[in-house]
Write a protein that binds this DNA or RNA. Structure first.
Length: 262
DNA sequence: CCAGACGTTGTT
DNA sequence: GTCTGG
DNA sequence: CCAGACGTTGTT
DNA sequence: GTCTGG
């Protein structure tokens, strides 16, 4: 799913990674939650002078929680912070944005909560093994109020978890690789079906998952401490809930609890 | 034709 | 706004 | 995503 | 349980 993430790289790193001009005020953020402002990157709206060296992409802050343009009262609805990539093309709410407003959301990594039976959810900090900035595929929309006010919003696309992350959760954000940035955001030349291949689970070896304390659960905890590893890990918690109602034996994760990819 | 929905997650 | 259901 | 609230009256 | 807030 991706209902919480972090962007702690410097402004310069993000500009270099995305090839975009990023706004000045740019503190590291360790615990970004739905409804908060998030950075999106999209093609610049202004025409560049010929021969300009300036990036032709720009970052903007928008509200995390996609609001379809036809909604009357954006605050009366639960924010749509994730959008299923498998069905986005068929949904009224997302069709236009998938055709015309495909954007990227720069991130340093994201969080997933692993639930195990009745046990408490264990949060994991999931980051690229070799660091750097990643980019989630996202859709942007501008909501217009009756009074002429406007709110820019975005939702992060999701797909099935890759094999490595499926031990933690069954969904994951769409991660766009740098070679696909231009095609993803070029809505003038590429139709949704021509970018469908981008909305796939990331390779198994891209991420590492680090169990962290539940400090991250609380949105008001915004210090780097939310990413401190804890000893509790998949091995310790990957046991079947004791009083399982049925005994399938096939599709659970009990095994030996071992996680080769971590 | 008009009315009504329009989303994701996880859990049962 | 646009689609589905009746 | 998780955390936290979830209510009214009257009085100051 | 269900909704709102971040």
């Amino acid at each position: 799913m991706c209902g919480r993430f972090s962007l702690k790289n410097s402004r310069d790193e993000v500009e270099a990674a995305l090839g975009a001009l990023i706004p000045d005020d740019f503190p590291p953020r360790y615990n970004i939650a739905p409804t908060q402002p998030i950075l999106i990157v999209m093609p610049s709206e202004t025409v560049r002078p010929v021969g300009s060296n300036r990036p032709d992409r720009a970052g903007h802050l928008v509200r995390w929680g996609f609001v379809p343009s036809w909604v009357k009262d954006p605050n009366a609805r639960a924010p749509i912070f994730n959008i299923r990539s498998e069905t986005a093309a068929e949904k009224n709410s997302f069709k236009a944005a998938l055709s015309h407003r495909r954007v990227l959301v720069p991130a340093s990594g994201f969080y997933e909560w692993r639930r195990n039976g009745s046990n408490r959810a264990q949060p994991y900090w999931i980051r690229p093994r070799h660091g750097g900035v990643i980019a989630f595929g996202a859709l942007m929309e501008t909501w217009s109020g009756a009074d002429g006010s406007q709110i820019d919003t975005a939702g992060i696309l999701t797909t099935g978890a890759n094999e490595a992350l499926s031990l933690i959760h069954h969904r994951m954000p769409v991660v766009v690789v740098p070679e696909d940035y231009a095609r993803w955001m070029d809505c003038k030349h590429y139709l949704p079906r021509e970018v469908a291949d981008i909305m796939q689970p990331a390779p198994d070896d891209l991420f590492e998952a680090i169990p962290v304390s539940d400090l991250v659960n609380k949105v008001s905890n915004t210090s780097p401490d939310v990413q401190l590893p804890v000893s509790a890990d998949l091995t310790a918690t990957a046991t079947r809930p004791k009083k399982a109602g049925k005994k399938t034996g096939a599709d659970d994760d009990s095994g030996n609890g071992q996680l080769s990819m971590f």
